[in-house]
Computed example of a mutant assay.
Amino acid sequence: MPRVYATPTQLAAWTGEPAPADAERLLARASEDLDDALIRAVYLVDDAGMPTDPAVVVALRDAVCAQVEYQLAAGDDGTGAAGRWDSVSIGPVSLSGRKDGPQATGDLDLAPRAYRALTRAGLLPGVIW
């Protein structure tokens, strides 16, 4: 089961706006983004893989909320497609005007506020010595 680091209620408190109808999906995708960003981070977790240190719990919650806020502001639905194409249609498929942005090679478009929350908690840059 995927780890999700924030709730729709926490997202609403973070943004000061009601959580979007698909908040749970957006939070799950943003949590996956954080997991990718923290691939080399070391912190204590419970049996479900959730952090146990209260400071890390808060940092991950804030970073996930910041990531969703960032994606919503960019017009991204959590798929990453908004950062790649000027226009996308589904039927019959039409893509146009490729934009610069994170590439499919693994570059992660992490929200600046999410990055700062993770850095303040000592989770980034995630280098193991």
Rank of each mutant, 00 (worst) to 15 (best):
Y43M: 09
P112G: 02
D33N: 08
T7W: 15
Q67F: 01
D22F: 06
W85G: 03
Q103A: 10
A66M: 08
G122V: 02
L108E: 11
P102K: 11
L60S: 02
D107W: 04
D33A: 06
R84I: 02
P54F: 12
T7G: 14
D22P: 00
R25K: 11
M50D: 12
R113G: 05
D22V: 08
R61M: 09
G91P: 00
G16L: 01
Q67L: 02
D109G: 04
D86M: 10
G126W: 01
G49M: 14
Q103M: 09
Y43N: 09
Q71H: 12
R84L: 11
G106L: 06
P18A: 12
V56A: 10
V64F: 03
V88G: 03
A23G: 05
A30L: 04
G126R: 04
G122F: 00
A111T: 01
P8R: 12
D53K: 14
A55F: 03
W129T: 13
K99W: 07
Q71W: 15
A6F: 03
T79P: 12
Q67W: 09
T52Y: 10
A19R: 03
G80T: 04
D36T: 07
L124Y: 02
V57S: 12
Y5M: 11
S94C: 05
D46A: 11
R3G: 00
D53M: 14
D109P: 01
A74W: 09
G97S: 13
L34N: 05
A13F: 09
A41Y: 09
C65P: 03
L34G: 04
A48W: 11
P54K: 14
D76T: 01
R29G: 00
S96A: 15
Y5R: 06
V64G: 07
D36V: 08
V88C: 08
R98Y: 11
Y43T: 07
D47M: 13
G80P: 02
S31G: 02
W14V: 00
T7P: 14
D36S: 13
A6L: 07
I128C: 10
S96G: 11
R40T: 13
R25A: 13
T105G: 13
V68L: 10
S96R: 11
P8F: 12
A28M: 04
Y115V: 00
G16W: 02
I39W: 14
L44C: 10
A66C: 11
A6N: 08
D53F: 08
P18G: 03
G80W: 07
L44R: 15
V56K: 06
G75W: 06
G75T: 05
D76I: 03
G49F: 10
G91L: 13
G80S: 12
P20R: 12
D62G: 13
A73Y: 01
G97F: 04
P54N: 12
D53W: 07
W129G: 15
G80N: 06
P54M: 14
